[in-house]
Amino acid sequence: MKIRVATFNVSLYGKTAGEVYERLIDGRDPKAIKLAAIVQTVRPDVLLVNEIDYEPNAATARLLAEEYFSIAKSGRSPIEYPYIYAAASNTGIDSGLDLNGNQTSGEATDAWGYGVYPGQYSMAIFSRFPIDQKNIRTFQNYLWSELPAAKRPRDPETQKPYYEDRVWSKLRLSSKNHLDVPIQIGDATIHLLASHPTPPVFDGAEDHNGCRNHDEIRFWLDYIDNPDAAYLRDDAGNSGGLTRDAAFVVLGDLNADPADGDGKQDAIRRLLGHSRVQDPKPRSPGAAEPNAKNKANAKHTGDPSLDTADFGSSGHFRVDYVLPSESLNVVDAGVFWPQRQDPQRELISASDHRMVWVEVEVP
C-alpha cells in the first residue's frame, strides 16, 4: 500500500488564547482557506501540522479539519481526516523560573517553551488511518539535563553556564513536545516521530536556543539508536527508545538547515545521514527560482531546490522534513512551492513554510 506523509507549518497562532478558534469558526478565514487548498492539492494520507493552538479537546484542530479540509476550497476536492491527535505543548506554560535572567518571571521567555499563552505553536496529526492512541508516547516533561552529553549553554568567554544549576536541573528539553505516534495501516504500524524544535536564533553569544535546537534534534538520534536506554523516560514513566525493527518517519519543522543559517548543524546532518533514515530530498521548482530582491540566497551554499521556508530578508532555508526509515520504500517526494507563473503560487502566502511530502510503500 502506498501512503503519502506530509508536514506543514501553517503559522496558525494568535495573540491570545482562543483567537485562532474564533477566526476559524465560520469556515471563512482567508488564511485557512489557502492552507486547506494546499492540503486538498497535495492530499496527504497522514499530515503533521506545526503551529496550531492546542486545547485538551483538540477543538481548533477539529475545526480546521471539519470546516476547511473536509469542505471543497478553491474548486478542489475535500479530504476527510477521521483520526486527529492534538499534542500538548510546553509553549506558554510558565516555568515559575527566571529563564532569561532579567530578574523577572512570568514572561513569554520564561515559559518552558516560548509562548504568550499556553498551547501556542503546538502540533496536531491528521490521519486517514487509525491512530493507536493507547501507545502514543510523549516527552513533554523530559529534562534537558537527562540527555547524555547535553549541550549546556555557556558564556563563550568565561565558560560560565547560562543557566545556573537550580534552573538547569529543572529545564525541559522540548520547546513544544516530542511525540511517538503509532499509525495503524492494515497490519503494519508506522511510528510518527514528530517535533518542532526551537529556532536556533533570538539569543546571545551563549547560543542557548542554538544548543536547545541541536539537542531537540539529537534526541531522535538517541531514540532511534537506543531501544533499551533507561534515560529515555516518557511522560508515563516508561523507558527506552524505538525498537530496532520498527518502521518510522521523523517529521516536522526542525528549524535546522544542514548547510545554511546560524544553527549547530551537527545534529541535523547526523540525522540525515543516519543508517536507519532515508533522506528523499523533496524538491520544488519554485524554491530554486532566482530572486534578485533577495541577496541573502546568493550567499547560501545549500541546494536551493531543497528549501522549504522563505524567511524574508534572511533567505530561503531547508528546515521542514519528512524522513522515512530504511524499511519503507520511497516512491515519490516533493515540496509544495509552485513557480511564479503557476496559478497556485498565490496559495503559499498563507505561511512562510511550505508543505513537504513523501510517498512510501508500506510493507
Rank of each mutant, 00 (worst) to 15 (best):
Gly106Thr: 05
Asn329Ser: 15
Tyr117Gly: 03
Val331His: 07
Pro338Ile: 10
Thr138Asn: 09
Ala87Met: 12
Asn291Thr: 04
Pro343Thr: 07
Trp144Asn: 00
Pro290Arg: 05
Pro161Asp: 06
Tyr68Asp: 02
Lys264Gln: 13
Asp257Arg: 00
Gln133His: 15
Ile190Phe: 05
Lys73Tyr: 00
Ser70Tyr: 05
Trp144Phe: 13
Glu359Asn: 11
Ala58Gly: 02
Ile25His: 12
Ile93Tyr: 08
Ala37Glu: 10
Arg76Met: 14
Tyr142Ser: 00
Leu171Cys: 03
Tyr321His: 06
Gln40Phe: 09
Ser239Met: 11
His300Leu: 03
Thr198Phe: 02
Asn213Leu: 09
Glu361Asp: 15
Ser327Lys: 13
Ala108Asp: 14
Thr308Phe: 01
Ile3Phe: 06
Leu97Asn: 06
Asp215Gln: 02
Ala205His: 10
Tyr321Cys: 02
Arg354Ile: 05
Gly241Ile: 01
Ile183Pro: 03
Arg172Ser: 01
Pro30Leu: 09
Ala124Cys: 07
Ala150Val: 13
Ala205Arg: 14
Trp337Gly: 00
Ser122Tyr: 05
Ala188Asn: 14
Asn255Gln: 11
Met1Ser: 15
Ser314Gly: 10
Asp266His: 07
Ala88Arg: 13
Ala287Cys: 07
Gln265Ser: 10
Arg152Tyr: 08
Phe317Asn: 00
Gly240Met: 08
Arg318Tyr: 00
Ala287Leu: 00
Ala149Val: 12
Ile25Tyr: 03
Asp180Trp: 07
Pro258Tyr: 06
Pro82Asn: 08
Arg212Asp: 01
Gly14Arg: 03
Ile217Gly: 00
Thr60Val: 15
Glu206Gln: 14
Pro197Ser: 09
Gly334Glu: 02
Lys73Cys: 14
Gly75Ile: 09
Ser174Phe: 14
Gln140Arg: 15
Arg166Asn: 15
Pro343Met: 10
Gly27Tyr: 08
Val46Met: 05
Thr16Met: 12
Ala296Trp: 01
Arg233Cys: 12
Pro285Gln: 07
Gly241Glu: 04
Thr158Met: 09
Gly315Tyr: 02
Gly96Val: 03
Glu107Ile: 00
Gly96Pro: 04
Arg43Cys: 10
His353Leu: 09
Gly241Thr: 02
Asp180Ile: 12
Tyr231Pro: 12
Lys160Gln: 15
Tyr163Arg: 01
Ala267Leu: 01
Asp266Phe: 05
Val5Tyr: 00
Ile84Cys: 06
Gly106Ala: 05
Asn297Tyr: 02
Val49Phe: 15
Pro197Ala: 11
Pro130Ile: 11
Ala61Asn: 08
Arg76Leu: 15
Gln339Val: 15
Phe129Thr: 03
Asn291Pro: 00
Leu272Phe: 11
Pro258Leu: 13
Arg152Phe: 05
Thr104Asp: 10
Ser195Gln: 10
Gly115Gln: 04
Gly302Gln: 06
Asp257Gly: 01
Pro130Gln: 11
Phe129Ser: 01
Gly312Ile: 07
Ala32Thr: 02
Asn9Cys: 09
Asp303Asn: 13
Glu51Phe: 06
Val249His: 04
Leu143Arg: 15
Ala256Trp: 01
Gly273His: 08
Ala292Leu: 14
Ser275Asp: 14
Ala108Trp: 12
Asp132Arg: 07
Asp342Ala: 08
Pro200Val: 09
Phe69Asn: 11
Arg137Lys: 13
Asp110Thr: 10
Ile79Met: 10
Phe248Ala: 04
Lys264Pro: 02
Leu251Ser: 03
Asp266Ile: 11
Asp266Ala: 14
Glu326Pro: 00
Met355Asp: 01
Arg23Glu: 15
Glu146His: 14
